[in-house]
């Protein structure tokens, strides 16, 4: 590839829109490229990386931070002891009991009291942080639920019932907010999916194109709650939606039985 051709590709490289082979060619070129060209790519990369700032934001589920910290703590517990924490075993200082005048039992009493106090304050601290987390969790849940409620009562919101086909007892309520292109689907009484299969939700357009929306597995009660953000360009010509049972991992086009269907 010519030098000017590679230069042309730098913006595509910055946004990650090159196939791996071409990307590595551009990367190689940039290693020895003039400083201003390197800087330009770095700047374009930064602009591209900041694109997510433009996305509309929803509250992050509160339990996620706990999940992250639990993972950290687990990894830390499993990690081999660091050199600094191993150091004390290397330099063992013989313990010589100091001459004391108190009785043995008094000393034990003191030790016991200290241990109790330490345990108690540890417990309280733990409980306190647990309660704080629980409170934050609840606050988030209330926030999410009130958002859902706001959706439900918004004049823009429509509700659609999906009827069971392969399993007549199954049904679903679809709550959709057209301007926000957001869907909430509450599915009930869907039979359990076999281990080698998944349920797949489809958007069906007015041109009868079937677009995969999401894979899911209902819980033990046959329930599932899906929150979807409609892909670009789908909302304006949506005709129907359906759920089929597909091989695990989903299919590109529906192949299995239709379990739920609704016309929009």
């Amino acid at each position: 590839m010519r030098r000017d051709e590679i230069k042309e590709l730098s913006a595509l490289y910055a946004i990650g829109a090159l196939d791996p082979a071409t990307a590595s060619e551009v990367e190689q070129y940039l290693r020895t490229a003039p400083a201003d060209e390197q800087r330009e790519v770095e700047e374009l990369k930064e602009v591209a990386a900041l694109l997510p700032l433009a996305l509309p934001r929803a509250p992050v589920p509160a339990h996620l931070k706990e999940r992250l910290l639990a993972r950290l703590n687990q990894a830390e517990a499993e990690a081999p002891a660091s050199p600094s924490s191993a150091a004390p075993t290397a330099k063992v200082v013989p313990f010589t009991p100091p001459a004391r005048t108190e009785s043995r039992s008094a000393r034990w009493l003191l030790v016991a009291a200290t241990v109790t106090l330490a345990t108690l304050s540890g417990l309280l601290l733990w409980q306190n942080s647990r309660l704080t987390r629980e409170r934050n969790d609840l606050a988030r849940q209330v926030e999410l639920k009130s958002q859902e409620l706001a959706h439900l009562i918004s004049p823009e919101t429509r509700v659609l019932t999906l009827m069971g086909e392969a399993a007549p007892q199954a049904s679903a309520k679809l709550v959709y907010d057209t301007p926000r292109q957001e869907w909430m689907m509450y599915i009930s009484d869907l039979p359990a999916a076999p281990a080698d299969k998944d349920y797949q939700l489809w958007y069906i357009t007015t041109e009868q194109a079937k677009i995969s929306a999401q894979l899911f597995r209902p819980d033990a009660q046959g329930r599932s709650e899906l929150h979807l953000s409609l892909p670009l360009g789908v909302a304006s010509h949506l005709a129907a939606t359906a759920v089929t049972l597909e091989p695990k991992g989903g299919s590109r086009q529906p192949t299995g039985q239709i379990f739920l269907k609704g016309t929009i």
Partner: peptide
């Protein structure tokens, strides 16, 4: 990994709608 391709050709209306949605993101920050 999900092997999904939930994409169709975007149309202008959806574009405008997406832009508007972005412009009025309302989650309290």
């Amino acid at each position: 990994a999900l092997r999904r391709s939930p994409l169709v050709e975007p149309d202008e209306q959806a574009e405008a709608e997406a832009a508007r949605r972005v412009a009025e993101s309302d989650s309290p920050e």
